[in-house]
Amino acid sequence: MKLILTADVPNLGAPGDIVEVKDGYGRNYLLPRQLAIPATRGAEKQVAAIKRAQKARQIRDLGHAREVAGQLGNLSVTVKAKAAGDSGRLFGSVTAADVVDAVRAAGGPPIDRRAVEVPGQIKTVGNHAVTIRLHPEVTTELGVEVVAS
């Protein structure tokens, strides 16, 4: 299936890229989430406009992304997990949405949960590092302390 990406998709491409993906991936993931549109002749003409707009946003957003990364570097984030066993193992796991809520509660800048990359699953109490991809050129590590409530 030939698609035109409308948003940045990790390990696939940037907005405006024409990609060839398997039918199920396109039909069940990319199209319902509006991350891509079908590649038709009319849509292919819009690729130049999408790439131009993306390039203008990147230049404008790079400085802002660095500013947000600086704000996140000075932040102390604590995630309160619902419950944990005696050994410190959580009954469940900490998700990217939990990290975003904790950043917002700590007074940090608003970030998108899709930009947060949680390594594997956080299933224990303690300090963990998560990666936040703010821009294709700007990523930052955030220390997250998980405590049982």
Rank of each mutant, 00 (worst) to 15 (best):
Ile132Leu: 04
Ser93Ile: 05
Gly108Glu: 10
Thr140Trp: 04
Arg133Cys: 07
His64Asp: 09
Ile59Leu: 11
Ala39Lys: 07
Ala39Val: 04
Gly126Ile: 07
Lys80Gly: 15
Ile37Thr: 04
Glu141Val: 10
Gly70Glu: 08
Ala39Met: 03
Gly108Thr: 02
Thr140Ala: 12
Thr140Gln: 10
Arg113Asn: 09
Val103Ile: 11
Lys123Tyr: 12
Lys123Ala: 12
Gln46Glu: 12
Leu35Glu: 01
His135Gln: 01
Ile59Tyr: 15
Val125Ala: 11
Leu35Asn: 00
Ile59Ala: 13
Arg133His: 13
Gly70Ile: 07
Gly73Pro: 04
Ala83Val: 11
Ala102His: 02
Ile59Gly: 11
Val77Ser: 05
Lys55Cys: 07
Val94Arg: 06
Arg57Trp: 11
Glu44Met: 06
Arg89Lys: 09
Gly126Cys: 08
Gly107Leu: 02
Thr40Tyr: 05
Pro119Met: 00
Ala69Asp: 05
Val130Asn: 00
Leu62Asn: 06
Leu75Pro: 08
Val47Met: 01
Leu72Gly: 00
Ala83Glu: 13
Leu90Ala: 12
Arg52Thr: 06
Thr124Met: 06
Asn74Pro: 12
Ile132Gly: 00
Arg104Thr: 10
Ala102Asn: 05
Ala96Pro: 05
Asp112Val: 03
Lys55Ile: 10
Leu62Arg: 13
Ala65Asn: 04
Pro110Lys: 15
Ser87Ala: 15
Leu142Lys: 02
Arg60Ala: 13
Gln58Tyr: 14
Ile59Cys: 10
Thr78Lys: 15
Gly73Arg: 13
Val94Pro: 02
Val138Asp: 03
Arg114Cys: 14
Leu72Asn: 04
Pro119Trp: 01
Arg113Val: 06
Arg60Met: 11
Ala48Asp: 03
Ala129Pro: 13
Ala102Pro: 02
Lys45Cys: 03
Arg52Leu: 07
Glu67Tyr: 14
Gln58Asp: 09
Arg104Leu: 11
Ala96Lys: 13
Val68Gly: 01
